[in-house]
Design a protein around this nucleic acid. Structure first.
Lengths: 127, 127
DNA sequence: TCAACAATTCAAGAGTTATTAAAGCGTTGG
DNA sequence: CCAACGCTTTAATAACTCTTGAATTGTTGA
């Protein structure tokens, strides 16, 4: 997960499951905001109001997914967001859009209401 | 979910939970590849080898999350990927990176092995 | 050395999610 | 009109995930 190759489906599912919990999404975004400085576990627990036991559980899931790195500092553990994993996830989720013709996703209204909805177009002009 | 405002956390969690299942991730990516044409439920079931009952369950989760649109065609249901939801998800996951200084994510090696790992750098040159 | 501290692991109970078969609903073609 | 079709809903079970308190590991400072 720390390598920069293409993620396989199992790895992507692990990442998505890691992010798909309110507590873990909060932890991850907090660390994204903090950037290279990161935070130690106790600071995260205090910032989010999570019991340490529960936070540990969630940190483990995020780290195993490759979304965080953990770094010992004496008796503290510093955690940081691992940005390349997020970039790989995004690549996996968007690759082969429209079979390699992504311009189709943003073309002009089709006259088909369902199709336009799928493409995020308004049927009626916004008021 | 079909509006183009910013997603709130609940909506993002729903989207991530929808994607965090192998069957649903397969369905979603299949429809991303198919683009505006989309596929009817039976085609999806055949392509992925899923029983119709089970596919319906997963399609419902994806559609409720806003990742797919459903469109009746006689007795068929055509599904299409709803790309704007994915773009909003990506925005939510990456916003405020490094507290608004994303250049920090790609700066030069720090001399701190843990930090460099978090930034996706190699400690040793590749062979 | 030992008590306080930071964090994790373990174990148990509650709550969710996935899968399947059976039943239901609307559409089509004879 | 009605049987076949495409798909969804329901209900039940099995499997997994979250949360908590108690026990554990390793670190620091007196």
């Amino acid at each position: 997960m720390l390598n920069n190759g293409t993620m396989n489906q199992d790895a992507v599912i692990t990442v998505l499951q890691a992010l798909a919990s309110p507590a873990r999404l909060d932890v991850y975004r907090l660390l994204v905001r903090t950037g290279p400085e990161g935070m130690v576990a106790g600071e995260i627990a205090q910032a989010l109001g999570l019991p340490p036991t529960n936070l540990s559980f969630h940190l483990k899931a995020l780290a195993q997914a490759g979304l965080l790195t953990a770094c010992a500092e004496g008796r503290y553990q510093r955690y940081r967001a691992h940005i390349p994993s997020m970039l790989e996830l995004i690549g996996y989720l968007t690759e082969e859009c429209c079979a390699g013709h992504p311009e189709q996703c943003l073309s002009t209204p089709s006259g088909n209401a369902c199709l336009d909805a799928a493409l995020g177009r308004n049927e009626l002009p916004p008021e």
